[in-house]
């Protein structure tokens, strides 16, 4: 189990999907294009990622390309941590 992915999954389930079965939120579930996260929720997730993993994200890194699925976000965090 990837701790970054699990941490993202728990946060999203607790904050935005209260009552959802954890199995339904996979690493590939689209978060923003599906409507799970709106623009406000996305800001909350960006803030969570920055605080939890100690990385700083630029506005261009939080577009749909890098920031729509748990898999992509975890990969982005891993890249950022490697670069530090």
């Amino acid at each position: 189990m990837d701790p970054i992915k699990e941490s993202l999954r728990s946060f999203i389930l607790a904050e935005y999907l209260l009552g959802e079965s954890p199995a339904n939120l996979t690493d590939q579930t689209p978060l923003r294009t599906s409507g799970i996260l709106d623009s406000m929720a996305t800001l909350g997730l960006v803030s969570f990622v920055e605080k939890t993993f100690g990385v700083m994200l630029d506005a261009h890194e939080t577009g749909i390309d890098n920031f729509d699925r748990i898999e992509d976000i975890a990969a982005l965090v891993a890249r950022k941590k490697l670069g530090q």
Binding site: L18, S34, G35, D38
Partner: peptide, 25 residues
Amino acid sequence: PSIIELKAFCNRNLPSYMSPDVFVF
């Protein structure tokens, strides 16, 4: 329905500011 399905449904049928925060069955 799953919560994810409901969120996606609201996203298609309501303005985003109307989408509920919590669903209780």
